[in-house]
Write a protein that binds this DNA or RNA. Structure first.
Ligand SMILES: [Mn+2]
Ligand SMILES: [Mn+2]
Ligand SMILES: [Zn+2]
Ligand SMILES: [Zn+2]
Lengths: 147, 147
DNA sequence: CTTGTATGTGCAAATATTTGCAGTTCCAAG
DNA sequence: CTTGGAACTGCAAATATTTGCACATACAAG
């Protein structure tokens, strides 16, 4: 579950320093589970290490994203969320009306996506796509609302 | 080209007021063309109407998005960009390394996407997807960088 | 175990975006 | 053509995120 030991090794072997802050932040994302915001990570980290700063959390989360250790979930009108990359690969459907976020398996979407954009010489590395639209309920409501 | 007349009718018939600010902002997005930021829209609008506020621009742009008159382009580490919805439907490939943004036709991606997420009862209405990854050049560089 | 130094951190300020609120204005109803 | 009131706006403050910089520290080399 919460074994972020290998993850810390990735940091080292990529040439980055293994600081207490980075370990705390890594542990926070692993421990909290699911999607977490920078603010939530900070709150957890500060229980053990009160002087860690929010900017360090942001910087570290982006570092972990660039190393592929965590994934970013970014949707308009909500703070960025982050999640361990060891979770099953998936995308998210974001309802623009009620705000609900639902996970869907990465496949077959990822494969199709990869094939289509490969024709443009592009290599998508984002396994965590935010697809905007309307959930079933909200879509039904919009339809009835017309008349 | 710049005929946003029908667009203003959409605002009215959706029950929103047709204010000078909304017309100026609409015209700005039509006139400037391509992807524009709130800041750019403000600069253009203020030439004719100096007291318009940036918050009004943000609010109005989001209103126009919700009415389907313009599209939002939202990628991490860059301000949101907006574009008239009358442009040919397309998505964007965003290189996470060099920052380049390339347009790709909406089809066949949109159709595939729609089919796949329909199985989850979801109706994607976002024809302006930001797909993250590496462009051809940057991908080549990463490969050679390994060795 | 030192030590030098590039990397990383805390803090504060900058930037990007959103929100609350009091005053203004569009426009439906008369 | 008025006019009342909800919708809208400007402004300022709040919130979200990024950045500059001086100081701290991980860690490679000795
Ligand atoms: Mn997720
Ligand atoms: Mn576009
Ligand atoms: Zn919904
Ligand atoms: Zn690139």
């Amino acid at each position: 579950m919460s074994c972020y030991h290998q993850a810390s090794e990735v940091i080292r072997s990529a040439g980055y320093r293994l600081t207490p802050q980075r370990l705390f932040i890594l542990e926070a994302v692993y421990h909290l589970g699911g999607h977490v915001t920078a603010e939530q990570v900070l709150a957890y980290v500060q229980k053990s290490s009160p002087y860690v700063d929010l900017s360090t959390v942001y910087r570290t989360l982006e570092l972990l994203v660039s190393l592929g250790l965590i994934r970013r979930f970014s949707a308009p009108n909500r703070p960025n969320e982050y999640e361990v990359a060891t979770a099953e690969p998936h995308h998210h459907l974001v309802c623009l009306r009620c705000g609900r976020v639902e996970a869907v398996p990465a496949e077959p979407l990822s494969t199709v996506l990869r094939e289509i954009v490969a024709a443009h010489g592009f290599t998508p590395d984002e396994t965590h796509l935010a697809i905007h639209g309307l959930c079933a309920e909200c879509h039904a409501q919009e339809r009835s609302h017309e008349a």
